[in-house]
Amino acid sequence: MDTYTGTIKPELKIQELTAEKVKFILTNVDLSMANALRRIMLSEIATIAIDMVEFELNTSVLADEFIAHRLGLIPLDSTEAEKIKYSRECNCNGACKECSVELNMHVKCTEEDITKDVTSRDLVSSDPRFTPIQEGPKDPGILIAKLRKGQEIKVKCIAKKGVAKEHAKWSPCAAVAFEYDPFNKLRHTKYWIEEDEQREWPASRNAADDFAPGDSEAFDFNARPNRFYFEVETIGSMKPEDIVMNAFKKLLEKISSIQMGMSTNDGMSGRDQPRDSY
């Protein structure tokens, strides 16, 4: 493609990179490409999350399914999620070491007049690679339930690999902020106003990195968005830069699998004849 192999090449600049988020500007790409990247990061990066919970004992005030749901939402370290199979692609019957991680939890409140917190720290993983995330030894963990004297929870959890397309608990991102054209030069939006647009719609944070329109600048109806502001925020299960890298990988995988489909379909089997009727 002349545009991309020639003079104008996409550029990417990281502005901020911390343990939980990465901020970058992507330029000289089409909106569709930037959006593909956003959609993949949000919903197609594989992570590990608790998917099945077996209750051996639950005398807490919370119902089984309520606790099971809370367990599912706990972020597990997914930096090595690639090394595990999807259970649907595994040859085993249900769950095995290749396609799942077992986590056990047994908590009982034995003390009088004390409310015992059940947290993600009480989960014991059978695989050290996939544990509930923890920010340092002082992190109190994520609260799952509270117990009074005599109450007890004993569960066996099976964590599996999945993508957020199926359930949001598998999303590695808390949010993916995505913005283009902070000055609305392209007029892709119309601001609802009371009286004064300038006063009621303060400039976005990204406006400082964009090019402000001149006072008498005419509307360019041929202009297309080409500067995108991303901010990828993780839930802690994966490093933010890894999420972005995995997104590229995933997109390339998608392309390759279609290319494969094209070549195996080369003979054009001729089934589904009616398809060319329109």
């Binding site: 493609m1 090449k9 990417l12 600049k13 990281i14 790409v29 890298m245 590229f248 290319q259």
Partner: peptide, 24 residues
Amino acid sequence: AMRKGLEDLKTICDHIKETFIRSN
């Protein structure tokens, strides 16, 4: 046309990926 399109998309994606690695 489809084949070329896929190839182009791959080129763009590869390029952005490399730019990200470099920027990182």
